[in-house]
Amino acid sequence: MRRGPSAFNLASIVLGLAFLYAPIVILVAYSFNASRLVTVWGGFSTRWYVALLHDRQMLDAVWVTLRVGILSATAATLVGLLAAVALVRGGTGPRRTALAGGVYATLVMPEVILGLSLLLLFVAAGLPRGFWTVTASHATLTLAYTTVAIQARLASFDRSLEEAAQDLGCPPWKAFALVTLPVIAPAVAAAWMLAFTLSLDDLVIASFTSGPGATTLPMRLYSQVRLGVDPKINAVSTLLIGLVATGVIAAYLIQQRRARVPAE
C-alpha cells in the first residue's frame, strides 16, 4: 500500500496545476470580454469571435496551417512508420546506426538551427519558399517524433501475431498490412496527432522556410502579438485550445475504455 498524499503533496499539486492552467484560463476568459482592456471586465461578449470571422488574413493563415499540418503529419507518419520498422526489425548494421543517429539528432536539434539549415537548403536548390517548403520542413521536424512514437509500440508488438498471419497464408507484407498495422493503429494515429499538433504550433521553422502567400497561423499570431495584446488573438487561441483539448481528451477516454478490457 502506498501512503496517501500529505497536505504538502496536495498543495504542490494544486499550486503546480494552477500555475500551468491560470494563463490559459485567463486567456480563454478574456476572449469573451467585451472590453479591449485585459484588466477591465466589460461583460460577456462574442464580438472578438465575430471580428475574427471577418479577418481575412487570419482565416487564410488558419487554412494554410491546417493544410500544412495535415500534409506534413501524413508524410511524417508514413516515413516514420518505415523508419520505425527499420529500427525495430532491421537488425543491426551501419544503416540502422545512421538512421537512429539521424532521428535522435533531429529530435534534439534546436529549432532555430533546423530552420536555418532548411532555409539554406531551399536557397541552394533554388526553390521558391512557400507552402511546399514549409510542409517538407515540418515533415522533417516531426519525423523524429512519429518515428519514436511508432517505434515504441512496434517494439512491444507480439511478433507471433504476424507469424500466425503468415502461417495462415499471408505473405510478409500482407501480414503486416492485415495484422500488425491494425493492431498498432492507435499508436500510428497518436503519432499523426502529435505531428499535426507540432506543425500547428511551430513558429520558428515556418518563419525560416515559408514565403509569400504561405503565412501560417503562428506566424500571423506572432506578428500581431508583437504589436501588442489583441482580443482577437485570445479568440483564435481559445478556438485552438478547445480544438486540441477536445481531441486529446477524446483520445484519452477512448484509450481508457480500451484499457479496461484486458489486453491480448
Binding site: 516515413v79 516514420g80 518505415l82 523508419a83 520498422v85 527499420a86 529500427l87 526489425r89 532491421g90 537488425g91 548494421g93 544503416r95 540502422r96 545512421a98 538512421l99 539521424g102 532521428v103 539528432a105 533531429t106 536539434m109 538551427i113 533546423l114 536555418l116 539549415s117 532548411l118 539554406l120 537548403l121 541552394a124 517538407a136 520542413s137 515533415a139 522533417t140 519525423l143 518515428t147 510478409p172
Partner: peptide
C-alpha cells in the same frame, strides 16, 4: 525476411540526408 525489412530504412534515410544532414553541412 531480415534483409527485406532493412529496405524500410532507405526512404527515411534519404529524407534525413536531403532535409537534415545536407542542410546542416550548408550551415
Amino acid at each position: 525476411r531480415r534483409s527485406r525489412t532493412g529496405l524500410a530504412a532507405v526512404v527515411p534515410l534519404l529524407w534525413l540526408a536531403v532535409f537534415f544532414a545536407f542542410p546542416f553541412m550548408l550551415v
